[in-house]
Computed example of a mutant assay.
Amino acid sequence: MKLAFDSLDLTLRGREILKTVSGQFQPGKVTVILGANGAGKSSLLSCLAGLREPQGGSVTLDNQPLFSLDNRERGRLIGLLPQRPDIHWNVDVKTIVGLGRLPHSGRWGMSDADHQAVARAMVATDCADLADRKAMRLSGGEQGRVLLARVLAGEPRWLLADEPLASLDPAHQFDVLERLKTYARAGQGVIVVLHDLTQAARFADDVIVLKEGNVLAAGPREQAMTAETMGEAYGVEIQMGTSATGEPLVVPVRRL
């Protein structure tokens, strides 16, 4: 189930955010969207999730216009973890995670399959031990894991995450990225906005680089994420290398 966008134009408050951009995403891969602040990353993700309709162009899912789907069907196919998500209800964690099953639940409430999906999601995000705690009393990192579990509980065909590493300690950052990669390897599609260039280099299969609302580069990570492209996108000199264990390192050196 391919997710694609074609000739997207988006203007917000008189400012061009996306400028006739096109691209596509393949299931089974982790695609990372990169770019400086204001490049259009979150806006593109909102369009792909069906939350914001562009003024021009189209978003298609398996060649079907995304905005022709009703909200419930779209919710079953695409799950979004937004930037800086908030928890506004002081209910227990398992209730928050259970909200991810709303597009699937029948009129009589959650089924056994729904409860099993919630349990799997909490285990996958290391928050099963938080199930009975009040969500608003958790730390920011714990809340981040709970909200990712809510998205995973919906078992979407496409999982979109906007800066999912915010507020997480390094160990849980690796856990989340590994979980997203596992989700992609199971045949689903994963699209992630990241600011950490080294993490992007380590976990991305494909990369889309945005600059001022345009696609600067797109393709397999090794081709799209070069020092030259990163330097142009961020306005800094970039050095790329490998760690002692052979993992990629991407280091900003100085402002250009």
Rank of each mutant, 00 (worst) to 15 (best):
V207W: 10
V118C: 09
A124G: 03
M240R: 13
V250C: 11
L12Y: 00
L197S: 09
R145C: 03
G154R: 01
D169C: 03
L81K: 09
F5Q: 00
S42F: 08
A4D: 08
E16P: 01
R255E: 12
Q64M: 09
N63D: 15
V236T: 06
L61R: 11
A124V: 02
L160M: 08
G98N: 04
Q239I: 13
A121L: 07
E178R: 14
A149G: 01
M225G: 05
D206M: 01
R254V: 01
M230D: 09
P85N: 09
F174T: 15
L159W: 02
V193M: 03
E155T: 13
R137E: 15
R84D: 12
L138I: 01
K29S: 12
L256E: 12
V91L: 15
F203K: 06
L168F: 04
G246H: 09
H195C: 05
V91I: 15
N37R: 10
V253C: 12
H104E: 09
A153R: 05
W89M: 15
A244H: 11
A153T: 02
L99Q: 13
E53S: 10
W89Q: 14
M225D: 09
G100R: 09
R157E: 13
L77M: 11
V59G: 07
W158F: 08
L12K: 04
V236M: 13
D62F: 06
S58H: 11
A184C: 03
L138H: 02
N214G: 12
G246T: 03
I191A: 11
Q143G: 11
E163C: 09
L194F: 01
V30M: 14
D92R: 15
T60N: 00
R107E: 04
L99N: 10
G141Q: 01
L77W: 05
G35K: 00
E222W: 00
L216I: 07
L138F: 06
R52A: 09
R133W: 11
A224Y: 09
T60P: 03
A131H: 13
V91G: 06
L138A: 10
L197P: 05
G141C: 11
T229F: 04
L61V: 05
S7I: 07
T31Y: 08
R137A: 12
G140I: 07
A244C: 04
D129N: 11
L61M: 05
S243C: 05
E232I: 15
T20L: 04
A36W: 03
A124K: 10
G109I: 00
E212S: 13
L180S: 01
